[in-house]
């Protein structure tokens, strides 16, 4: 019934490391929030926020404080339970993925064998997609429970977009799985010791990245929100703390997809040219690589205009999905013939 877990630490070590991992990754969210606004400013030859605290460093705190200080309200006709639970689902689904991200191999901390990751399950990538599917519910239920036509239309749009791109994303990862011969994320990173997968799986990497943009509703795929046509999309009726939850889930997605790109295609904690630092450096290597991809997310947002909805759909189904299938096929044939 449960997936195999390769390695289990004592309970207190699990508690400590889960706390550390979640605190580190969660704190990347407000940093991403600030970095986005500062970097977007720079990309447009302006400063970005610089009033709150030194260099505007307290801006996310002020934003979040403002949102949390607002009155909690719900539309009178909303399905109250679902309306309340939907943003939480979004955050939980995004945060759950953090547990799978490997920051380093198994190391010896004060005489206790510890894996520098939340949990190493044998079905890693499937688990990832299961959580991705749960995050649909966050958007869908939020849009539906609001009992508002714009929320509902936005939710339909978001769901259509996520399902379309999840297919391509999943197929893009099949290539990685075939090459590594394992679904476990730790095994995939270990298998990249010789060569990072973005070289043999370049097409897969591009597809994964593009689908990642669509999955996290980032520009140029930020269609679930559209001021002109559907106002705030599925989040139209949300305000205050609940809106902050959706917002946080979106940025958490960005962080998580950056970490996954590093894990699956950029060799996790490995460094190129045979550099082999001590194991305490490994988490830093992973985080620095992930920060590069977070920067890339922002860079893309500053560059590309939004797609039209029909372009989004035809790109997903007519370009990315066939390309991902072809990539899987070629990878499979190559792996079979070479081995």
């Amino acid at each position: 019934m449960f997936a195999d877990v390769f390695f289990v630490e004592p309970w207190w070590m699990q508690l400590i490391k889960s706390l550390v991992i979640f605190l580190v990754v969660f704190n990347l969210v407000p940093i991403t929030l600030l970095a986005e606004r500062k970097l977007l400013g720079r990309f447009q030859a302006r400063y970005g926020p610089n009033r709150v605290g030194p260099y505007g460093a307290m801006q996310p705190l002020a934003d979040i404080g403002k949102l949390l200080g607002k009155q909690q309200f719900a539309p009178r006709h909303a399905q109250h339970f679902l309306y309340v639970i939907a943003p939480c689902l979004s955050v939980i689904a995004a945060a759950g993925v953090i547990a799978l991200i490997p920051f380093g191999p198994t190391v010896d901390i004060f005489g206790t064998e510890t894996g520098l990751y939340g949990i190493d399950v044998s079905i890693g990538i499937l688990f990832l997609f299961a959580l991705g599917a749960v995050s649909f519910y966050g958007l869908m239920l939020g849009g539906w429970a609001s009992t508002n036509k714009y929320s509902f239309l936005g939710a339909m749009r978001a769901a259509a977009q996520l399902i379309s791109y999840e297919a391509a994303q999943g197929l893009a990862l099949v290539g990685v799985v075939i090459t590594a011969g394992s679904l476990s994320l730790v095994d995939i990173v270990e298998a990249q010791a010789g060569m990072w997968y973005f070289i043999p799986q370049f097409v897969g990497f591009i597809i994964f990245l593009i689908a990642g943009f669509a999955e996290s509703n980032r520009p140029p795929f930020a269609l679930p929100e559209g001021e002109a046509e559907i106002i705030g999309g599925y989040a139209t009726e949300y305000g205050g703390g609940r809106f902050a939850n959706y917002y946080m889930a979106e940025y958490l997605e960005v962080v998580v997809i950056s970490f996954l790109t590093v894990t699956l295609f950029f060799g996790g904690w490995h460094l190129p040219f045979g550099i082999d630092p001590p194991h305490w450096v490994d988490p830093i290597v992973v985080i620095v690589k992930a920060i590069f991809f977070i920067f890339f997310f922002i860079w893309i947002r500053a560059t590309l205009p939004a797609l039209r909805y029909d372009q989004l759909m035809s790109f997903g189904w007519k370009v990315l999905l066939p390309l991902a299938m072809l990539n899987t096929l070629v990878t499979a044939v190559l792996v079979v013939t070479l081995n």
């Binding site: 720079r42 030859a45 400063y47 610089n50 860079w299 590309l304």
Partner: peptide, 28 residues
């Protein structure tokens, strides 16, 4: 078309990055 789209995307990234390394024009 795909090749051009890819190339143009890279060109766009280059354009925005040029702005990124410049000094902001904001008058505070």
């Amino acid at each position: 078309g795909a090749y051009r789209a890819f190339g143009e995307t890279l060109r766009g990234l280059k354009t925005t990055f040029k702005r990124f390394v410049e000094k902001p024009v904001t008058v505070e």
